[in-house]
Each structure stands twice: as structure tokens, then as C-alpha cells.
């Protein structure tokens, strides 16, 4: 079983370092994926990191070498005479000299050590940053378990849904007909914008703002034929035309809509309409993602 050449021999005896590095890396990876507690995830991340450092240090090891600090006979301060020969006995008369290539093998490889030394210090700094984020999550949600945080986000979406659905039925209808982006639950996506990403939502958002502003003035008109050109306009021609109707959302982004890319320029009116339109309608909406009562 332990003869030369077998895989067991190769991995267990000659390359145990590499085997353990793989095992530690997998332990860290699994912890990062499967653990629910955020602190446990961070410990897993640190284990992952040290596994990689172990790998780097392992490849710098030379059999029978010493640490990467010059031995006294290779480094003498003070004198600067040029070495006449690299004879072992005459080293004490000379100052620092270019170490012979046969002696180079006597020192461990310093390069991986340098790379990993800074990585450790930067690692603890980033660990502190991640822990600060954990503290903020705990302040916001009262827990650091991943599934509980997700459940709380879900519940807040549910809570913030009915107030805005009451706000305007037609806007939710237009989003139903138009927004195929989130097909699973379009109502929630239109009503709780705060947790969604800005690049997915702005289309329905700007459109919903324009159509709702329009629908307020002309309520009696049929919604679906009216909403189609308005929506297509707001998506294609951007925020040039439609914001002119919804006055609060418009004025600022029109100036910067042209040079900026599309996602950026539309994310701005999305935020604006979210805060302004419920206030206009004066329905009791309270979209507060943060600071739940604890």
C-alpha cells in the first residue's frame, strides 16, 4: 500500500502538506457556503485564507534549508572589500557578497513569505471590515443567522405591499401587463423597490410613475392602450419626455440623462418617485427596510 508510485504514497507521505491544504480549503469553502451564521462564515473564510497561505509557504520550502536570514559567514557588516573568491574559509574577511548559487539552495525561498506576510495583515483588516458589516446587520435585523435575515426581509416586503397596491390599481395593472422582468410576483416587485436592484427595476418604476401621474389626471380613460406608448417612451427615449409630466421625478435627472449610461440615469428617478409618490397620494405607506422594531 505504501510502495513507491502509488497514489496513496504520493499524497499521504510525500505530499501531505498539499493534501491537508486541500482539505482545509474545502472545510473553509463548505463553511462559507453551508453555514447559516455569519460569524461562522467568516471563520470559514479565514480558514480558507490560511489554507492558501499554507500552500504558498509549502512551495517555498527547501529540504534542509535554513530560514531566509543570512548566516553570519554570509553577511558581515562594515567592510566593503570586493570578494576575491567564494571560498568558504575566506568569508570572514569580506563584507556582503553575492551568495553563490550552491549556497542559494541553503536558504528557504523568501518570496512566498513576503507575499503571505502582507496577506495575513490585510486579511485581519478585511475580517474587521466584515465584522463591522455583521454588527450593522445585527442592528438592523436583530439576528446574524442568514435564513432569519432573509425571512425578515421577506416579511418586510409583504408588509409594505398592500399600502402601495391600494395607491393605484392601474399602475399595478400596467406593470402586470408590461413588466415581464420579474414574472413570479410582479406586485411585490413594483411596490417594494428598496430591496430590489436598481438595474432591474427602473423600467417599471419610471413607467409606473409616469402612468400613475397620468392616470391621476385622466382616470376615466382606458388604461392599457394608454400605458403602452407611455411605457415604451419611458424605456426607450429615457427620461426626456415622461418626467416632464411627473414633475417631481423629472427636473434633476433630465440634465444628466444624456451623458450617463442608461442604468445610472434611471436609477435616480426611481428613488425619487418612491419617496414622493406615496406622499402625494397620502396613503399610509411606510416602506422602511431598516430599523425594524425589536
Amino acid at each position: 500500500m505504501f510502495e513507491d508510485g502509488t497514489i496513496i504514497n504520493e499524497l499521504l507521505i510525500e505530499r501531505l502538506n498539499y493534501l491537508i491544504y486541500v482539505v482545509l480549503l474545502l472545510i473553509g469553502l463548505h463553511a462559507m457556503i453551508a453555514k447559516k451564521n455569519l460569524i461562522k462564515k467568516l471563520i470559514g473564510m479565514s480558514i480558507f485564507q490560511t489554507a492558501i497561505i499554507l500552500f504558498y509557504v509549502s512551495i517555498g520550502v527547501k529540504e534542509g534549508s535554513t530560514i531566509p536570514v543570512y548566516l553570519p559567514e554570509h553577511d558581515l557588516h562594515g567592510s566593503h572589500s570586493v570578494p576575491s573568491d567564494t571560498n568558504e574559509t575566506s568569508h570572514f574577511e569580506h563584507g556582503p557578497f553575492i551568495v553563490d548559487s550552491s549556497l542559494v539552495r541553503g536558504y528557504a525561498n523568501p518570496l512566498p513569505h513576503v507575499l503571505m506576510l502582507t496577506a495575513i495583515v490585510v486579511g485581519v483588516a478585511t475580517l474587521g471590515l466584515a465584522l463591522a458589516l455583521c454588527l450593522r446587520i445585527y442592528q438592523g435585523y436583530g439576528t446574524i443567522e442568514e435564513d432569519e435575515v432573509l425571512a425578515k426581509i421577506e416579511r418586510q416586503e409583504m408588509l409594505s405591499k398592500p399600502s402601495i397596491v391600494v395607491k393605484s390599481v392601474d399602475s399595478s395593472k400596467t406593470t402586470n401587463s408590461k413588466a415581464e422582468k420579474p414574472p413570479s410576483k410582479p406586485k411585490v416587485s413594483s411596490s417594494s423597490p428598496s430591496t430590489k436592484r436598481p438595474q432591474a427595476i427602473p423600467k417599471t418604476k419610471a413607467k409606473a410613475a409616469s402612468t400613475s401621474a397620468k392616470a391621476k389626471t385622466s382616470r376615466a380613460k382606458s388604461v392599457s392602450p394608454k400605458a403602452k406608448p407611455a411605457a415604451s417612451k419611458s424605456t426607450t427615449t429615457g427620461s426626456k419626455k415622461s418626467p416632464a409630466k411627473s414633475k417631481t421625478a423629472a427636473s434633476k435627472p433630465t440634465t444628466k440623462a444624456k451623458p450617463k449610461p442608461k442604468v445610472k440615469s434611471k436609477a435616480k428617478p426611481a428613488v425619487r418617485t418612491k419617496s414622493s409618490s406615496p406622499a402625494k397620494k397620502a396613503t399610509a405607506s411606510k416602506p422602511k427596510p431598516r430599523t425594524p422594531k425589536k
Partner: peptide, 19 residues
């Protein structure tokens, strides 16, 4: 033990200490 004394020193102060 592998000869990476600087890394070991850093790990002792940072990994086992500060973190």
C-alpha cells in the same frame, strides 16, 4: 517549522492575537 519565521511571527501576533 517550515522556515517561514516572518510569516509565523505575523500569524502569531495577528491570527492568534488580534483577530
Amino acid at each position: 517549522e517550515m522556515g517561514a519565521v516572518d510569516v509565523a511571527f505575523t500569524e502569531a501576533t495577528v491570527g492568534a492575537g488580534i483577530s
